[in-house]
Computed example of a mutant assay.
Amino acid sequence: MTAAEKDTEHTTEPSPKAIATAKAFVGGHGGSARAVVENLGRAGARIVLIGEDGQFGDVLVPDAATGEALVEAVDGLTPHKWDGETTAALKIGAAHRRRMAGARAR
């Protein structure tokens, strides 16, 4: 097997830890959540989870295909894109906004 074949050969099955993290989020934030899979390139993919209560979290996986498989594997997750409805469902508090802004906001 060549190095190129190894790079393209990977599993799309999410790890048990990733599944457990997503299930815990869904259970802790209203029983369902929106999931937006973001491709991060070589770094993998990020699944942003937005709960019914507007809180958000994320799960990192090796690639976008694994992220999509995670969404399918967890009851209560529904795939979404970053559209107006999904963005409006997200509730970010003032403390989190300051933390995201960094030292300049303090």
Score class of each variant (00 low, 15 high):
1 M>H: 10
1 M>F: 07
3 A>Y: 10
4 A>G: 09
6 K>D: 04
6 K>S: 07
6 K>I: 09
7 D>W: 08
7 D>R: 15
9 E>N: 10
9 E>S: 14
9 E>F: 10
10 H>D: 04
11 T>L: 09
12 T>N: 12
12 T>L: 09
12 T>S: 12
13 E>P: 00
13 E>W: 01
13 E>M: 05
14 P>V: 06
14 P>F: 01
17 K>H: 08
18 A>S: 13
19 I>G: 12
19 I>S: 13
20 A>K: 15
20 A>H: 09
20 A>F: 05
21 T>C: 00
21 T>W: 00
21 T>Q: 03
21 T>I: 02
23 K>T: 06
23 K>G: 00
24 A>F: 09
25 F>V: 15
26 V>Y: 05
26 V>Q: 10
27 G>D: 15
28 G>N: 11
29 H>P: 08
29 H>N: 14
30 G>S: 02
30 G>Q: 01
31 G>K: 14
32 S>F: 04
33 A>Q: 03
33 A>V: 09
33 A>G: 05
34 R>I: 02
34 R>G: 12
35 A>K: 00
36 V>C: 03
36 V>F: 04
38 E>I: 03
39 N>I: 03
39 N>T: 12
39 N>G: 12
40 L>D: 07
40 L>P: 00
40 L>V: 04
41 G>K: 03
41 G>W: 06
41 G>R: 03
45 A>Y: 09
45 A>Q: 10
45 A>E: 09
46 R>N: 13
48 V>D: 11
50 I>P: 01
50 I>K: 02
50 I>H: 01
50 I>L: 07
51 G>H: 01
51 G>V: 04
52 E>D: 01
53 D>Y: 07
54 G>T: 10
55 Q>E: 13
55 Q>Y: 11
56 F>Q: 06
57 G>F: 05
57 G>I: 08
57 G>P: 05
58 D>Q: 13
59 V>Q: 10
60 L>A: 06
61 V>F: 08
61 V>A: 11
63 D>G: 13
63 D>H: 15
64 A>V: 15
65 A>S: 11
65 A>K: 12
66 T>S: 13
66 T>M: 13
69 A>Q: 14
71 V>H: 01
73 A>L: 01
74 V>Q: 09
74 V>D: 06
75 D>N: 14
75 D>E: 15
76 G>M: 05
77 L>E: 00
77 L>A: 02
79 P>V: 02
79 P>H: 01
79 P>T: 03
81 K>D: 13
82 W>N: 04
83 D>H: 08
85 E>L: 02
85 E>R: 06
86 T>M: 01
86 T>S: 05
88 A>Y: 05
89 A>Q: 08
89 A>W: 05
89 A>G: 09
90 L>I: 15
90 L>M: 14
90 L>C: 05
91 K>V: 14
92 I>C: 06
93 G>V: 07
94 A>Q: 04
96 H>I: 15
96 H>Q: 15
97 R>A: 10
98 R>T: 15
101 A>F: 02
102 G>N: 03
103 A>I: 10
103 A>M: 03
103 A>N: 04
104 R>W: 07
104 R>P: 00
104 R>D: 07
105 A>T: 08
106 R>F: 04
